[in-house]
Amino acid sequence: MSPERRLNLADLHGTPVIIAFYPADFSPVCSDQMALYQAVMPEFARFGASLVGLSVDGVWCHRAFAESRRLEFPLLSDFEPKGLVAREYGAYDTDEGTAERALFVLDREGVVAWSYLSPVGINPGADGILNALEELSRQGAAR
């Protein structure tokens, strides 16, 4: 995703969306977590889900981070006004001035179906996301 591009969540309606809020590009836990999600992309794709990462880092920092870890999913910059999106999701740490380490899975209509707030020093993995996507898929099939 180019640094100039803006993303509106409405653009992603029609597919489940995973939003991974994280504190900082290049920090050890964030690096491991985002590298893991890149590796798990084929599993997310099985559910037709889109993944975006989000932190308060600027777009050029995001680009360098994505290149260094070979991340192919968009990293969104919640930079100005700082943390606005994270605050709206209740996932902003006002003491640190960063996003929390929080996961959201939105359904095809953009409604939050699942969320998880992880301790900041712990990589939450991807099992919760996959369980939530599976549940959404099951609910969709039952309709």
Binding site: Y89, G90, A91, E100, A102, A113, W114, S115, Y116, L117, G125, D127, G128, N131, A132, E135
Partner: peptide
């Protein structure tokens, strides 16, 4: 923010 109930711990 709260953790919604159908998160299954992955331990």
């Amino acid at each position: 923010m709260t953790t919604t109930p159908f998160h299954v711990t992955g331990a």
